[in-house]
Design a protein around this nucleic acid. Structure first.
Lengths: 335, 335
DNA sequence: TTGTATGCGTTATCAG
DNA sequence: CTGATAACGCATACAA
């Protein structure tokens, strides 16, 4: 089955390819009879324009690249779904890669996006390639930062204010009498974890309380890491009375490990999580948590890229979302 | 920042574009000095070949399309992740769309894939577009069916044998004394649900037992549907004593609703699920389930497409995976 | 209104 | 070993 091109259509309709192109793109008037002939030819031959050729000519691929750390993370999955929903009706499709938080891989994938001439990039960045992203942006490819704010440069951005959330969580725990509060974060390099640290320390500072560095854990956004740290914590002489978990995955691990080690939440230790877990309603105790608003982040990211695609010149936009603490049963008051 | 092309490189190195192309593609010998000059020019100008142009010329995009019903379904997410892992090292990237089980959307997206000239398609099909997929395949784009087997035509395929699994589940329930067994499936149209039905009926047939059609539910792969049917079931005069759930999402809904309605599993009703739920270890009772092997399906799908890409002529391959029943605590024995 | 011809950035064929 | 040039499929400026 040969691929039929605009030439074939032209031949079949007995016109030039220019005219065929005109009726396809409705770019100028074509006489009704000829138009009809061409349309018939298109149907008969089942002609489909070659988007590669078009892209080469117009420098528009109708493709948006998404670069995230891990597709299998429900957090990002939801974002992707929302982005897809936003952009699909404008004819864009998504091309998607995951970096595993590896800056080198990230760089490679940014290159891939550039090479593939995507019309725009949505990225949850490791933060180590901002200089490079800047170049890509300057070359004409809009870039939207999601979940993690850029550090040095200016980019369109949408994320939840983790510093404020961490501040609120910490304050809440302090108000419940907790003084020894563990913060279990993802990688130290990733700016969101710095922000959580910021909010955490601010709460202690404002209450004129000292920070115990031993209670600050930086690792990975994985269930394994959460499990491992919980075990570690319970070997400590001077245990924390509460934990702040930076992500659902970490929370998953904490809960799993607590179950294995017969640790009771909140009786043995309190827990607050960034992001509720799947089926959270069924798991006892129901977690006190902050919503990560991933659906909203995704929706906004989709809209932002569409706007930016329409107007390349408009001012850089920064959407910082606030999230509230949802208080349920995983925190115990300390006398 | 202008985009630098092979012409710029050629000019900078003082050679023709043909020679530049030669060193880029190592397609024929170039004298060492010239080669060095060109390589330098490439670095200095930060030249990156335009993949669009290349694709137009070579008809190879290094892109694989994935068509599934719903990205936000963990089941498909895992598959995608595995596929990505398989193909990324061969320089392929994934373009991904979701159909929401809508055959018309599916058809549109198949077109998109065709138009974008992807090198191959991995699809979990509604089953309504096989004729069209056949044409696409004949046009030279390899197609791999995942999770759902093709019906009329021959395609490379990898899926778990749901009929056998359903047969095993049903047999198990029958052996535990259950006679009134509800089967809560996804859409009637989707072949996997027919297969489940097949396995279910076979078990009854082999045991010389009658089937109650009222206990056969077909709907959606959603939590809402699971919840709704559970409620419905408990309004029945003659309730089933056991439920077979066709998917994690449905199971989620069943568990959530059971919790709301104070229905105790397995005391009030037994439950077996296709696929375990997230954090299944923590939710009581731990489910008796069959593993959906999504990781393996994804891995195999990735390998299959790579092989097919290497050899377009090889025989159609069909991988049917078997899965075992994992018995835990959600089924009660009936006197 | 329609056709001719050029170029998008490559690769490949053919001379030299 | 190297260069000029055609071709990939399409869109469009320019001519007619």
């Amino acid at each position: 089955m040969e691929r039929v091109t605009i030439k074939d259509v032209a031949r079949r309709a007995g016109v030039s390819i220019a005219t065929v192109s005109r009726v396809i793109n409705k770019t100028s008037n074509v006489s009704p009879e000829i138009k009809k002939k061409i349309e018939e030819a298109i149907v008969e031959l089942n002609y489909r324009p070659n988007l590669m050729a078009r892209a080469l000519k117009n420098d528009i691929t109708h493709t948006i690249g998404i670069i995230i750390s891990d597709i299998s993370n429900p957090f990002f999955m939801n974002i992707i779904r929302e982005v897809e929903n936003q952009v699909k009706e404008f004819g864009y499709t998504l091309i998607m890669v995951s970096t595993d938080e590896d800056p080198e891989k990230e760089r490679q994938y940014i290159k891939v996006m550039y090479d593939k001439r995507v019309d725009g990039i949505i990225i949850s960045s490791t933060g180590k390639n901002e200089d490079y992203l800047c170049k890509v942006k300057d070359s004409g490819i809009p870039i939207i930062f999601i979940d993690r704010r850029p550090d040095d440069y200016k980019f369109d951005t949408v994320y939840v204010d983790k510093a404020k959330a961490a501040y609120n969580i910490t304050n809440y725990l302090l108000s419940k009498g907790h003084r020894k509060i563990a913060l279990i974060s993802g990688p130290r390099d990733i700016i969101t974890n710095y922000d959580r640290f910021l909010g955490y320390t601010k709460a202690f500072y404002n209450n004129n309380l000292p920070i115990n560095n031993e209670f600050l854990y930086f690792g990975e956004y994985t269930s394994e890491y959460g499990a491992q740290v919980l075990e570690q914590i319970f070997k400590l002489k001077d245990k924390p009375t509460a934990i702040i978990s930076a992500s659902e995955k970490i929370t998953n691990g904490i809960l799993l490990q607590a179950n294995r080690l017969n640790i009771c939440i909140p009786d043995d230790i309190s827990l607050v999580s960034f992001g509720d877990i799947e089926m959270g309603e069924l798991i006892k105790p129901r977690l006190t948590y902050v919503d990560n608003l991933n659906n909203e982040v995704g929706k906004i990211a989709g809209k932002m890229i569409l706007e930016r695609l329409k107007d390349y010149q408009k001012n850089v936009e920064e959407r910082i979302l606030n999230t509230n603490l949802v208080i349920r049963e995983s925190v115990k008051e300390i006398k």
